[in-house]
């Protein structure tokens, strides 16, 4: 039982996967004329302290934030955040209340635009296009990036009409086109079996968990590439939460999901990568397993171990 000399523990941090363990992401087939370049763009040099997003060199990340700052009046709510989010991954934003994670999430699809005094600097590239470019078509942007809120917010319409709402706005009117689309979205959102016999009843009659899955189905109906979720389970019971979490795992093969959560166990369960925000700065961004077993940063360690926040 000979054990030779001990390895030097001083080079602890050098063994990290240089590639960050990025999952193999497949290039998305081109969609002509939608203004979303599908060819991998050369990754620009990254600025900011936490830019080293773990992605493969061959495929540019779907979302690339470059020194993004968000100001509410004079207050800098987000401070020069740089982050790369690869396609077909689930990224969780964690951090104490007021740390800026929701603000940053909303800056991805310009949902802060309507807040008076809100100003965004830096670049937010989605599919290589800066979403803050004045020529950006907002209808396309919102179609490509779906949003699911904390509280389920179905329209006071039938289940069917909730899902068909977006496609109808896009000009899809025929039942022959809408029916399979509605079914497909409800199936993807894992709520088809519970709703197929009551499609034309009010969505408000569904339970909270069912309503949230309906909202996800509604978000999927416009065929987005990205789903942003702002605490999607915080108003749900544990069983409904479990269903949404399972759903997120299933959706990532087709979509890229960015979620804000206060539930760290949820971040640990569903995400591939986790970003920890504190006081408007991105403190650490790494594979989720690293963040929850061996974070590089002491503040991250203190937060995930519940020592502050």
């Amino acid at each position: 039982m000979s054990r030779l000399t001990a390895p030097d523990p001083s080079d602890v941090r050098t063994a990290r996967d240089a590639n960050g363990g990025a999952p193999p992401s497949t290039p998305r087939p081109g969609r002509a004329g939608d203004g979303w370049p599908s060819a991998p763009a050369p990754a620009p040099a990254t600025g900011g302290r936490a830019a080293a997003a773990p992605t493969s060199a061959a495929v540019a990340p779907l979302i690339q934030a470059r020194n993004v700052s968000v100001y509410y009046g004079r207050h800098e709510a987000i401070k020069k955040v740089s982050v790369d989010i690869p396609e077909h991954s689930v990224v969780a934003f964690i951090g104490p209340s007021g740390c800026g994670k929701s603000t940053f999430l909303r800056s991805i699809n310009r949902l802060n635009d309507l807040i008076p005094g809100c100003r965004v600097t830096g670049e937010m590239l989605v599919g290589g296009t800066d979403v803050y470019d004045p020529r950006q078509d907002m209808v396309t942007l919102r179609r490509e990036i779906g949003l699911v809120f904390q509280k389920p917010n179905p329209f006071p319409k039938s289940i069917y009409d909730n899902v068909a709402y977006g496609p109808r706005l896009q000009g899809i009117k025929r039942r022959a086109d809408l029916d399979p689309l509605v079914e497909d979205c409800l199936r993807k959102a894992a709520i088809w079996d519970e709703t197929k016999d009551r499609l034309h009843q009010s969505a408000l009659g569904l339970s909270g968990g069912q309503q949230q899955r309906l909202c996800i189905a509604r978000a999927l109906a416009t065929k987005p590439r990205i789903l942003l979720m702002d605490e999607p389970c915080s108003a749900l019971d544990p069983i409904a939460t479990r269903k949404i979490e399972d759903l997120i795992g299933g959706l990532k093969s087709s979509y890229t999901i960015v979620m804000v959560t206060h539930n760290m166990q949820q971040a640990a369960r569903v995400s591939d990568r986790t970003a920890f925000f504190y006081l408007g700065s991105l403190i650490e961004y790494d594979r989720t397993s690293e963040i929850f077993t061996n974070p590089s940063n002491q503040q991250t360690n203190d937060y995930v171990t519940g020592r502050f926040g």
Partner: peptide
């Protein structure tokens, strides 16, 4: 308690 990071280790 579902400890994480240094506590989990």
């Amino acid at each position: 308690h579902q400890p994480a990071a240094s506590d989990l280790r």
